[in-house]
Design a protein around this nucleic acid. Structure first.
Length: 278
DNA sequence: CATTTCACCTGGTGGC
DNA sequence: TGCCACCAGGTGAAAT
């Protein structure tokens, strides 16, 4: 599942290859699902614009777009916002490459490259914003990689839900999904079902460090390739080899040897060590 | 308002 | 071998 480290990897890869390029022609599939803005409007808005930058905001990929007549170094006039959902891929390809099944967007660039959005399950989202009429996209919650310790601890004050559910709530903290929620809670030694508002400040501070460490390490390894995640160049990540609890049900805890347990929490498979996490 | 549940999707898996 | 019910999970709407 693309979470913060995977989305960061994709955004960096796309940025490196298309920054400064210009969108020449756009094609969209006829499905309704991945489109938050109607495809016709997106195509009209995108064509002719220069790509100023591609970056990550939470789990979203934001393409900052400039005008049609000027050549870079200007303020963004529009944004193309991509969410990968469960199975989305954002790829930079040559125009003659085979078009994968479930391709929903093709952006032909003046350099000859193409940006393609492929998403079998169609949980992804494509949105276009004209900044003259819509506000800039900032993401729904607090950015976990840079959040201040006191701000992080304050996010959970008075919350009457499980800490794992709180970590997954994008309006509290954005970018964390099922893998990194489980992995950070293991590394912090906290049970996923502990009530968020009842955690001691020391535990929350430890959780912040664990979360930032695991996210940073995962970004360094190009993310976790479970199911079918690949980066902008179609290359898999390696952080799945570093998972200590996620999808390790029944296998021995790497610290104490106790079999890893799996429960369902907040509707999600949740993995933890009943000895190391209290 | 805060929190929980469920629908949206398709490919892969496991049971018979 | 073939078929099919079932599950995975990010998000947002609906329910509680």
């Amino acid at each position: 599942m693309p979470e913060l480290p995977e989305v960061e990897t994709v955004a960096r890869g796309v940025n490196e290859r298309v920054r400064g390029d210009r969108i020449a022609e756009v094609w969209f599939s006829s499905h309704t699902q991945p489109f938050k803005t109607p495809p016709a409007g997106q195509a009209e808005g995108l064509e002719g614009r220069i790509i100023l930058a591609v970056r990550r905001v939470g789990k979203h990929i934001v393409c900052d777009l400039g005008g049609r007549d000027v050549a870079g170094e200007e303020q963004p006039e529009a944004q193309w916002i991509v969410h990968l959902g469960m199975t989305g891929r954002l790829l930079v390809t040559t125009p003659d490459g085979d078009v994968a099944p479930h391709t929903h967007a093709r952006l032909r660039l003046t350099s000859g490259r193409e940006i393609r959005f492929v998403d079998p399950r169609r949980f992804g989202r494509l949105e276009y914003r004209e900044l003259a009429v819509a506000k800039e996209f900032f993401g729904p919650g607090v950015e976990p990689t840079t959040v201040d310790p006191d701000v992080f601890a304050g996010l959970f004050k008075g919350r009457k839900l499980a800490i794992k559910a709180a970590l997954l709530n994008q309006t509290i903290l954005h970018g964390v999904g099922n893998i990194y929620a489980d992995e950070s809670l293991f590394r912090a030694g906290i049970r996923p079902k502990r009530m968020a508002g009842r955690l001691k400040k020391a535990e929350l501070l430890k959780l912040r460090v664990a979360l930032q460490d695991v996210l940073q390490h995962a970004i360094q390894l190009g993310g976790s390739s479970v199911s079918d995640y690949v980066d902008a160049n179609g290359v898999k990540g390696f952080f799945q080899l570093e998972h200590r609890v996620y999808m390790r049900t029944g296998q021995p805890c790497l610290v104490c040897g106790t079999p890893i347990q799996r429960i369902v929490l907040a509707g999600r498979g949740t993995h933890f060590c009943s000895v190391c996490q209290q």
